[in-house]
Computed example of a mutant assay.
Amino acid sequence: MIVVEQVGPLATIQDLGRPGWFDSGVGVAGAADRASFRLANRLVGNSEECAGIEVLLGGLALRADRRCTIAVTGAPAPATVDGTPVGHASVLELGAGQKLRLGMASTGLRSYVAVRGGIDVPPVLGSRSRDTLSGIGPRPLRSGAQLPIGPAPHTLPNVEFAPVANLPTAMLTIRAVLGPRADWFVDADALFDGEWVVSADTDRIGARLDRRAGPPLRRSVSRELPTEGMALGSVQVPPSGQPVVFLADHPITGGYPVIAVVVDADVDAMAQARPGQPLRFRRTR
């Protein structure tokens, strides 16, 4: 059992999501930065789909009621065990009663905590992920919550830490494929010209972008768009002309045109971009 003693801005239980429910109006959800989530599970010897904790910015404190193995990845929130600093993206052993605390990350947006055996809360529609848009899945963590741990896997962690690249603090380059509604805009290539900034209006559903300099994107088609499916990474443009990049908890349908779609490999980087982060789009095929 893991006991939650403190929660920062937000902490949710996540796994790799619940695919296969679009026909019932339910999205996939799951970890926003899938690569960091998978790494945390691999470090403790779990299969990649085991449930862990996604932590927004930091501020989480956990107490182990028995010996357990933990790893913290993603945004590099400074971590301590009983006050002693410990390494990021490393294998940590907590004894009974010991406490893991995460400070506030100086870069990036989301950290991930994996425990050997996974967080064993009851699944909903085959997943333990919290979908913040629909409200499906376990509630966001609160102080005093007790999180059961699943059976330890037979595989053992085979590294003590994983070298990971620093998250970018300067310009972030995001690759995107133009379309499917690029023809609804006066100049769709304007998305790739100049620079954008992640606004404060960003969450697990999507990241809204502001133009750093220059006008917003302008539509050439004024009629309404029939509701159509929305993919992870879709760059949707509402009437304001300020695009929104859809992330893990995005709606599965929408009525605003999608000017481009972020390539899957760059969605994780987009999920770590915090408000104020400058970025540019690079067109790819």
Rank of each mutant, 00 (worst) to 15 (best):
G30L: 00
T132Q: 13
V4M: 00
R218W: 01
V159F: 09
D249M: 07
A64I: 05
V177T: 14
A165T: 11
S47A: 14
G144L: 02
H154Q: 14
M270L: 07
H88S: 09
V28G: 08
R181C: 10
T80Y: 03
S234A: 13
L172A: 13
T169R: 14
V124D: 08
L94A: 11
D183F: 09
D193C: 12
S127M: 03
G137P: 00
L43P: 01
E5V: 00
R67M: 11
P78C: 05
Q242T: 08
N166E: 15
E160K: 06
R204T: 05
R285M: 09
A61N: 10
A162N: 05
I13A: 02
R218K: 14
V186L: 14
A11G: 07
I136V: 08
M270P: 01
Q6C: 11
G118V: 01
T284I: 00
G8A: 06
V55I: 15
E228A: 10
I70G: 07
A29P: 05
A265I: 06
A40T: 09
P226L: 13
D203F: 07
S129Q: 05
A61D: 12
P163Y: 07
P180V: 04
R139H: 14
L94I: 10
P157E: 04
C50S: 14
P226K: 14
L141H: 12
I149W: 00
A29E: 00
A152P: 09
P138A: 03
P278T: 10
L209D: 02
D264E: 14
S134K: 02
I136T: 01
M1G: 15
S36A: 15
R18N: 02
